[in-house]
Amino acid sequence: MSSHQQFESLKLEALPFLWHPLEDPATNPFPATLPFELNHDAVSGIVSQVPDPAVQEVLAASYGKGTYFEGLMDATGIGAEYAQDFVKFIDMSISSTGTATHTALDIGCGTGYLLSLLKEKGMEVLGYEPGFAAIGKFPVPVEPAFFPSPAIAGRTFDLIAAFALVEHIPDPRDLLRAMARYLTPQGVAVLAVPDCEDQISNGDLSMLIHEHYSYFTLETFSRLVESAGFETIEVRKSGFGGMIYGAFRRASSPPPRQPVAADDLLGRVAAAHARLREYLERHEGKEIGVYVPGRAVNSLYILRDEIKTADITLRFFDDSDYLQGRFFPGFATVVESRAELIASPPDALLIYSYSFADRIIANLGTSLEGSVEVTLLANLLDGRA
C-alpha cells in the first residue's frame, strides 16, 4: 500500500500556484494554477498533499527563481515578530530541560536573522539555506545547500531549530531522522509549523499551498515527530502568527499510538463552500473586499464561476507594503492598502484570517462603521455570520 493511505482524498484540477506576488499577472513565468491532491493518513492523522512529479518540477524551477511571500524572519516588520516569539519558545525549552546549549543549527535559516539572535546569546551557530534569502544579510555562517551535507559530517549540535520547514518536505520523517542523527544525546530540536487546526476543523482550503506537503494540528505534529525517533517535551500554539511550536529530544523508541478515527474532512469542505456560496449570493451585484487575500485565493478560485454569475467585483486588501500594488497568481485584482480601503470602501469586507483578525479589526477602528458590512471568516464558516 502506498504511504499515502487513501483514507480521504480530495482532488482539485486547478489551484493557484502561489510562488511570488506578481508585478503583472500577464508576465507570470509559471502556470497560474496547478493540480492539487489532498489525502488523510489513517495512522498519523496528518492531512497531506500527494506528491505530483509535474508539480514538483514547477516547484523546483520556482525555488531557483526565489519563492517569496512574507513571513521570513527578519530584523524588521512581521518577520521580527515571528522571530521574537520563536526565540521565547526556544529559551523556555532550553530552560525546562536544563540543556547546556553551546552549538546551534538552523535548518532552512532564511535570512539568517534567527541565527544572529542565537549568536548574541553566545552560541556557536550554523545555518542551512539552499535559497537566496540568507546570503550576506547577517554575519552568520550559512551553508548554501540542502541539509544534511558533507560540511557537517561528524558534528552534532545542542540545539537544532527549523522554523516553517517541515511542512515543505514530501517525506518529513526522513528529515526528522536526519535531525536526530546530528543532535547531541541531551540536545533539543525546536520546530515550528503552520497551525492548520482551525482550517481543518472548518473544512477551509485556505491552508493549501503547493509548497506545503503537510498540514498539522497539535496532535498530528507530535505524532509525526515521535514516529521519527523523538519524544515530545512540549507542543503548543505560538503566541504570534498562527504557528505550532514543538520541543523534542531523541527517544530510544517511539511511544505507542493508536490509529486516529475516521475524519469527515470532505464533508466539512463541502459545508464551508456552501456557506461561502450563500455569502456570495447575498452580495449579488456588490463589491466585496477581501482582507488577507493570500488566504482566500484558493476558495475564491474554486468559486470563480459563482462570483462571475453573481456579478461580484472583488477587491483585495493587505497591510503588507510588499504585497500592495501586486497581484496573486490566478487573479487580475491588485492588492490595495488599508488607507485605500478606508478612502474608497467596498460594500462588504471579508477578513480572511484566523491569526490576525483581531489586529485587523483594531487597526480599522471605527473607520468603516455604518458603511461596510464586516465579516470574519471564522464566524462565516461556523454559521455565526
Rank of each mutant, 00 (worst) to 15 (best):
M1V: 12
Q6K: 15
L10W: 10
A14N: 11
P16D: 07
L18V: 11
H20C: 10
P25Y: 13
A26Y: 12
T27C: 13
N28R: 09
A32P: 03
N39V: 12
H40T: 09
V43R: 10
I46G: 00
Q49W: 06
Q56E: 15
K65M: 15
G71P: 06
A75D: 07
Y82N: 01
Q84S: 13
Q84I: 05
D85F: 03
V87H: 01
K88I: 09
I90V: 12
M92P: 00
S93T: 01
S96N: 12
T97F: 06
T97L: 10
A104C: 10
D106A: 12
G108T: 02
G110M: 04
L114T: 00
S116A: 06
K119T: 11
K121I: 03
G127H: 05
E129R: 08
E129G: 02
G131M: 05
F132K: 15
A133H: 01
P139G: 14
P139D: 12
P139W: 06
P141W: 15
P144C: 10
F146S: 09
A151W: 04
T156W: 04
T156K: 14
T156A: 10
F157Y: 13
F157R: 08
A164E: 12
L165Q: 03
E167L: 03
E167G: 00
H168I: 01
P170N: 06
P170C: 12
L175N: 03
A178P: 02
M179R: 02
R181V: 10
A189G: 07
V190R: 00
L191P: 00
P194W: 00
C196A: 14
E197S: 10
Q199G: 03
Q199W: 04
G203H: 01
L205Y: 01
L208E: 04
I209S: 11
I209W: 02
I209Q: 08
E219F: 09
F221D: 01
S227G: 14
T232D: 05
S238V: 07
G239D: 11
I244M: 05
Y245E: 03
R250A: 12
P254R: 09
A262V: 04
D264H: 05
L265M: 07
A270P: 05
A274Q: 15
L276D: 00
L276F: 14
E278Q: 14
I288M: 03
G289M: 02
V292E: 02
P293E: 07
R295C: 11
A296L: 01
L300F: 07
I302K: 02
E306K: 09
I307C: 01
T309I: 13
I312W: 02
I312Y: 03
T313I: 10
L314W: 03
D318W: 00
D319N: 15
S320A: 14
D321Q: 08
Q324W: 00
V335I: 15
V335S: 10
S337I: 02
R338E: 07
L341Y: 00
L350Y: 06
I351A: 05
Y354E: 08
S355D: 12
R359F: 11
I361Y: 12
T366S: 15
L368P: 09
S371V: 12
S371L: 13
V374I: 15
T375V: 13
L376N: 05
A378H: 09
